[in-house]
């Protein structure tokens, strides 16, 4: 490519058109070559050259950094947020419910303690700690199973088989907090499909967990998320 360009330019110089004389340009080219060395020296040496270079680097550099900042999606749009789950007072210990996060992710939240504090609850993520696939509940095997690399977890989210068990990775628990008697979970907010994915059926908590969630959840699902 470059070679062809060079030959084109030679060709151009030798055959430059009728409006200019090839002799002239050739001579001029030679003398320019000798004087260009002087130019180059002064170009680097003089203060004006330094000012010019600094100016160019600073201004275009700033412009480039602004463009770089644009590459990062707008801030303030956190991918997780504290979301209301249910009132603590109406939640019996031992019961659990299936919470569907705004992103569409299902989170099984169970109350295992009597105390009115976040530690009495656990919210398990369905994201496998190994490589991020989705685990699902296998009621016949009483385990959460990850189809990607055959990872398995017990009810508490502790890995029992597969790569997660070898690495000692448990299912991630979502942070929980209680404010004014209401339980909040820090859950993922955005799904890949945007804020309002069209797959509605998937988000109906009662439709999904008939056979695929722990027994306690099944009992609750009948109540359509209303704890009693």
């Amino acid at each position: 490519m470059i070679f062809s360009f060079v030959s084109i330019s030679r060709f151009g110089l030798m055959n430059s058109g009728q409006d200019s004389t090839s002799q002239d340009s050739a001579e001029q080219g030679d003398s320019a070559a000798s004087s260009s060395d002087d130019h180059r020296r002064s170009f680097i040496a003089t203060g004006s050259a330094v000012a010019m270079t600094t100016g160019l680097v600073a201004s275009y550099g700033t412009f480039a950094s602004m463009a770089g900042r644009f590459l990062f999606p707008a801030g303030g749009r956190r991918s997780v947020g504290w979301q209301f789950v249910a009132a603590v007072a109406s939640w019996q210990p031992g019961k659990s419910l299936e919470y569907t996060a705004p992103s569409g992710a299902t989170v099984v939240i169970a109350r295992h303690g009597e105390a009115d504090e976040a530690e009495a609850f656990i919210a398990l993520s369905s994201v496998c700690p190994h490589l991020g696939c989705r685990v699902h509940w296998e009621s016949q095997n009483d385990r959460f199973f990850c189809p990607c690399h055959n990872g398995a977890f017990d009810r508490q989210g502790v890995a029992t088989q597969g790569p997660p068990a070898k690495a000692g990775q448990s299912l991630k628990a979502y942070p929980l907090k209680i404010e004014a008697g209401l339980l909040y979970v820090e859950a993922p907010l955005h799904s890949v499909g945007g804020d309002a994915p069209t797959a509605v059926a998937q988000n109906d908590p009662s439709a999904q967990n008939d056979s695929s969630a722990p027994d306690a959840v099944q009992a609750d699902a009948v109540e359509k998320g209303r704890l009693s």
């Binding site: 303030g76 749009r77 956190r78 947020g81 979301q83 209301f84 569907t100 996060a101 705004p102 992103s103 569409g104 907010l189 955005h190 804020d195 309002a196 994915p197 069209t198 509605v200 988000n203 109906d204 908590p205 998320g225």
Partner: peptide, 20 residues
Amino acid sequence: EAGLRTHAISVPAKSRSCVE
């Protein structure tokens, strides 16, 4: 805009079809 848009909105899954 921070004043105009005070928080990020997330549609709770249970109410998604209502909102749509």
